[in-house]
């Protein structure tokens, strides 16, 4: 098996990231819609926090005066000017796949192409105007999960696989920590509201938005803020906890470099190992003592550094013209 072209590795990594992003958005929208149905009468729908989770609230506010459901769903799912919207993410995933199509198997390409055509169809059908758009988002979520299934059973565990997973797990680590950051602060209730039905609904929605409700229940039982934080950030077994994602991403790096000793063989492995072990040996008190927001902020900065070093270490190519001139001289 040949080594991968840097350009191809780049595209496959981003294919992983964008698909994960799209799947997360589909789930977020579905869960938030469900939550809104349970709000007491007279209470306004809350979509702004969800947009805040995606990190694009500023951009949203520039173009949309209100945070009504239709505007929010349009922005999150179909707005082509929002580079992270579901449709933008799927389009980019597909564009990256198209560029490296020779590296994908037929099923993967055709199913991904189908998801893309369905997302475009959703745009044409103006899904955001529908009274109940959940069917669309649930369908997209499953269609992407089908792609994961196809990959799991057909893709060889070579470099391409690990670059794809690296992208996927980094994206997931990022999204889970963001969802926790934003929601936690909104949810920390006034003392008199603790344990109220509404409080429960919100915590449940938070867990559901990362598909973790049932797992949390079995592992932790009672829904308490500290438990949720520990579960989403530090849990050793839940595949969407930040710690778990970083562990998997780190494993991908070692598979890519072929390094099996202790420590690291490149700067990405170094930063990844540091971050992973920080979470591995942290307990919930460390997080709370530092302050959840500060703690998560630090994680996000480090994930960004890791992303940048991935680019530098694996994807950057040299300009062949410059090189040639040097040789000629």
């Amino acid at each position: 098996m040949n080594n991968m072209l840097s350009r191809v590795a780049d595209s496959i990594y981003w294919l992983g990231r964008y698909l994960e992003r799209a799947e997360n958005y589909a789930r977020f929208i579905d869960v938030n819609y469900n939550l809104m149905l349970d709000l007491p009468p007279g209470m306004d729908e809350q979509w702004e926090p969800l947009i805040a989770v995606t990190g694009d609230l500023e951009d949203y506010k520039k173009r949309h005066p209100t945070s009504d459901r239709k505007s929010a769903i349009f922005f999150l799912a179909f707005d082509e000017e929002n580079p992270n919207s579901l449709l933008s993410s799927i389009s980019r995933a597909r564009e990256n796949a198209r560029v490296v199509r020779e590296n994908l198997n037929k099923e993967t390409w055709e199913k991904l192409n189908e998801v893309y055509l369905q997302a475009k169809q959703g745009y044409k059908a103006k899904i955001w105007q529908m009274d109940d758009p959940r069917g669309f988002f649930i369908h997209i979520k499953y269609a992407i999960q089908l792609l994961y299934g196809i990959a799991d059973t057909t893709v060889a565990r070579t470099e391409a696989w690990y670059f794809n997973r690296l992208g996927q797990y980094l994206e997931r680590a990022d999204k889970t920590s963001r969802v926790l950051d934003v929601k936690y602060h909104i949810l920390l209730p006034a003392p008199e509201e603790v344990g109220s039905p509404l409080d429960y609904l919100h915590w449940m929605a938070l867990l559901k938005s990362v598909s973790g409700f049932n797992t949390y229940r079995r592992a932790y039982g009672k829904i308490v803020p500290h438990g949720v934080v520990e579960f989403l950030m530090l849990d050793k077994f839940f595949p969407r906890s930040t710690f778990f994602c970083l562990t998997e991403a780190e494993e991908c790096l070692y598979k890519i470099s072929g390094y099996s000793g202790k420590g690291f063989s490149n700067s990405t492995e170094k930063y990844m190992g540091e971050l992973r072990s920080k979470l591995e040996f942290a307990d919930i008190n460390d997080v709370i003592n530092k302050g959840l927001h500060e703690y998560i902020d630090d994680i996000q900065i480090k994930i960004n550094i890791i992303s940048n070093t991935i680019h530098e270490n694996f994807f950057m190519t040299r300009d062949n013209l410059v090189e040639q001139k040097q040789v000629n001289e």
């Binding site: 080594n3 840097s6 350009r7």
Partner: peptide
């Protein structure tokens, strides 16, 4: 390229050194 199982390359993926052609890989 997919059907043959070979690399699909663009000019920017390649470079020449000592009259040999190389792909820029990871």
């Amino acid at each position: 390229a997919q059907q043959m199982g070979v690399e699909l390359v663009t000019g920017a993926d390649l470079m020449v050194q000592n009259q040999r052609v190389y792909m820029q890989t990871t």
